[in-house]
Simulated scan of single mutants.
Amino acid sequence: MAAPGNPRPDAGEARDETFGFFTTSQAAVFRDLVRQGFAQAGLEVTAYADHVVDSSGRVFGLGNVAAECHNDERGERAWREITTRHTDRIVRATDAPSPFDTMTPAELYAGTYVRLVPTADLLQVRAAYAREVAEGVSEVLNVDLPESVAMFLDEHVERFGPLADLRRAGLVNLRAVPFDQHEMLEHQGGRVDILLGDSMFVASSLVVLGDVLTRLGLPTPGRYGVFVAAPFRHQLAFHVLGDATAIPSLNVLAALARAGYDDAPGPVSPDVFWWRDGSLERLTVNEPDGIRIDVGPELTEVLDRLG
């Protein structure tokens, strides 16, 4: 998913250990621009490999803005604009009062969404209510704000819940998430539907995948289910099993998921899952030397039947 303006470094160039799509010199320029952006917004920070820390100990990750710089077609000339806009937005959001203190319960419910995030991101977060829906992927609640989102912590759920009511509202809003693009990727015998959008919750639409297919006028998944990937927050990709294109489509999805997860802002999961009636089974394992696809006896039987 490298953008035309930002080709990956040649094999002979040293790559940054944290952001492999940058050379070491590009990464140094990027981190310095981020530091300058925070300073311009009134916050002095110290830059580390994948985050910055201010004088009060607050930590701000760099993964999303790094991916945004990498994927911009204008190349390095756009990085100052991107980092300045990003840091200004972060500082304003950090200094603003909490939406859980300023919004009414009705406003919160109207802006609440179920969201998928990497389970690893929740290790230091007070969100015991979170539910792991698939290996490495968990479901939380977010409130959508004009320039950002805010995660419900346990105390917010206790204050505005019950959880079941909040989740019900989050699912209603998730079913209405707009998709700005619906593309069909046909490659090496595979056929994959790709949904893209500006919404932070496009990938999270995986939670209501059956409703998504109905909205798009696509065939209702039968007993064979759907191969699906949610690489980053703005993309959902899937293949409805029904014919011999299933195996090549699984291969296409595996490569697509890994590339999107590595390169795009808001990574969710690098894996492909087998969806059946809302349950998810992980099919891929991403290893240093490549992607391994694990197909169990049940799916093997299905693929043999389709093939």
Score class of each variant (00 low, 15 high):
95 D>H: 13
76 E>K: 07
230 A>Y: 05
163 L>K: 07
171 L>H: 09
186 E>S: 14
256 L>H: 14
192 V>T: 04
163 L>D: 02
70 H>L: 08
242 G>H: 07
16 D>E: 11
198 D>W: 04
142 N>G: 02
135 E>F: 13
292 R>Q: 14
5 G>A: 13
215 R>V: 06
205 S>T: 14
156 H>I: 06
100 F>C: 12
153 L>V: 10
253 L>A: 09
140 V>I: 15
202 V>I: 08
160 F>N: 14
253 L>Y: 10
137 V>K: 01
222 G>M: 08
191 R>Y: 00
196 L>I: 03
170 G>Q: 08
296 G>Y: 00
190 G>I: 02
49 A>P: 00
178 P>M: 08
64 N>W: 06
300 T>E: 12
205 S>L: 00
19 F>L: 03
194 I>T: 00
144 D>W: 00
8 R>C: 08
192 V>M: 05
223 R>P: 07
263 D>E: 14
71 N>C: 12
31 R>Y: 03
221 P>G: 04
26 Q>W: 13
6 N>L: 09
228 V>D: 06
201 F>T: 00
221 P>Y: 07
35 R>M: 08
152 F>S: 08
197 G>R: 06
50 D>K: 05
175 R>A: 15
154 D>N: 15
198 D>N: 07
243 D>W: 02
154 D>W: 10
274 W>H: 15
128 A>L: 11
217 G>Y: 03
198 D>Y: 03
89 R>W: 00
215 R>E: 13
218 L>G: 01
262 D>M: 05
203 A>S: 12
72 D>Q: 07
159 R>G: 11
276 R>I: 13
44 E>P: 01
146 P>S: 10
159 R>V: 09
56 S>V: 12
180 D>S: 07
263 D>H: 14
239 H>F: 03
3 A>R: 15
132 E>T: 11
33 L>K: 10
125 V>Y: 14
214 T>K: 09
93 A>C: 11
173 N>M: 08
223 R>E: 15
249 S>F: 00
307 G>M: 07
288 P>G: 11
60 F>V: 07
61 G>V: 01
56 S>G: 12
80 R>L: 11
122 L>H: 02
78 A>I: 01
26 Q>S: 04
263 D>K: 03
62 L>Y: 02
173 N>S: 04
212 V>Q: 03
283 L>P: 05
302 V>N: 00
269 S>A: 07
256 L>V: 03
98 S>L: 09
59 V>Q: 08
246 A>Y: 04
58 R>I: 03
56 S>L: 11
178 P>K: 03
